[in-house]
Design a protein around this nucleic acid. Structure first.
Lengths: 247, 247
DNA sequence: GGACGTCATTCCATTATATGGAACGATCCG
DNA sequence: CGGATCGTTCCATATAATGGAATGACGTCC
């Protein structure tokens, strides 16, 4: 274990996740490092171009270099590449915000998103994580037949199921999702007022789980429009399954 | 200079930029490291979750963790946040692929892109870099009045101007761009068959340079449609300039 | 305006730690 | 079956990271 590498990446990650540039002593305190140590780590990261020291404030901010690296990784990601046209088409048909997600452990990782040109309400940012049990895409992926039982248990355990979100309810909901082939989250606990419709996608390797979703404000997701959206999600997911190769 | 951090990040960056998973000895050879050293670096990166060793092939591949970090950085980027609605609207009006770019040194860095729903031809990937002098967005940014002379010289020097792309021609073109307020690249040397229309955006801090562009196949970028596109680019760039705050 | 506190930076002796060579199996290929 | 390449482990060595102290700059509060 190269501890210096671990520290350097911890500093970089800390700056990336911070909402604003950080002072040296702040970083040192947050990560429990010595000031002199932090100083050298930040200096080397600056030399390497991953970090920039603001001349005015003296604070440190990440540059776009990590993002450039990450962009290489995501653009090469097989699921993202394969699903991109379907994500696009679902957006074209429904006119709503559509997302492509992966199940990573007990969390939903948002891979890609096309936002509705309308007034954009809450939109989950690509790269963000959401508890699987609180999200239409998460339910769709958990409901896949190939999902091992322990993974579902873990996802339920990790989700903040309080008074109005019992584990039994979610398990029952998963049964429903499995039966009809898509997940519908009308009353989201995670993002109130947002309705999501999602279907899981078959993946080349069985252990990866992916889902497509369309989501938007509850006021618009009713009646005939909602029926259209559900139908579009089902049709496109089925088309992925019947395509030349799965995701 | 923490050399171990530099090596670790070099390994990570190398894996990220590689088009396929790499074997250990390949990484060691490419980066001129010892095998045992590379082994430990890859092990620590795996422990930290930035790298995964494929069980089947034994090769190493980057995980999505770097991408997640990069997504945090880009989503917090002020220019990207501020320009997103304009990028969206330019796409809505023109129906073509639109991009938001920054000038970083003598290169254009593509920040964001909305692809045309039509058959997608060549599309520059977000995170990719293009020589500034070979690209409509690059010309628009170089033509800004605030661009220092040496930067233009450098951009020209770095661009592969051969027989049909003399430095004088580009300088003359920059004059034209400066006069009419937008850049038009009809015969792209970098991506043949693609026409680009771009205008620079005013930025809060004078030294950052940003541009919006619409681009697509040469066959479609003619006559009235091209005029519409040019007008849309001009109008939206002007709207940014007159907005509450610049980018 | 002066004094205090916080911060960033530099230096250096100490030692922990990264290093690279060698040696060992495993695996692949001819 | 034999040779070659690869990944992995081990360990003595020396390099390079560490943390404490000292310094100077900056900002803040009486």
């Amino acid at each position: 274990m190269d501890t210096t590498v671990a520290k350097g990446l911890a500093v970089l990650a800390h700056l990336a996740r911070a909402e604003a540039p950080l002072r040296l002593s702040q970083v040192a305190q947050d990560l429990d490092l010595q000031k002199s140590n932090t100083h050298r780590l930040l200096s080397t990261l600056s030399e390497l171009g991953y970090v920039r020291k603001e001349p005015e404030t003296g604070r440190y901010a990440p540059t776009l270099k990590i993002w450039e690296l990450g962009a290489c990784v995501i653009s090469a990601h097989p699921a993202k590449r394969a699903a991109a046209p379907y994500l696009q088409e679902l957006h074209r048909i429904t006119g709503e915000t559509t997302t492509l997600s992966l199940l990573d452990g007990h969390q939903v990782l948002v891979l890609d998103k096309i936002v509705a040109p309308r007034t954009l309400r809450f939109t989950s940012r690509p790269g963000s994580r959401v508890p699987a049990a609180l999200n239409a895409s998460g339910l769709a992926m958990l409901a896949q037949e190939t999902t091992p039982e322990p993974l579902i248990r873990m996802a339920l355990a990790e989700s903040p199921h309080g008074r109005d979100l019992a584990a039994e309810d979610i398990l029952a909901e998963l049964e429903v999702v499995r039966g009809r082939g898509y997940a519908l989250m009308l009353k989201s606990k995670y993002t109130p007022g947002v309705v999501g419709v999602a279907a899981s996608l078959p993946t080349r390797d069985g252990h990866a789980r992916a889902a497509l979703s369309a989501s938007g404000p509850a006021e618009r997701f009713t009646g005939a429009h909602l029926d259209e959206i559900i139908e579009a999600v089902r049709v496109i997911a089925a088309r992925v399954a019947n395509a030349t190769g799965p995701i």
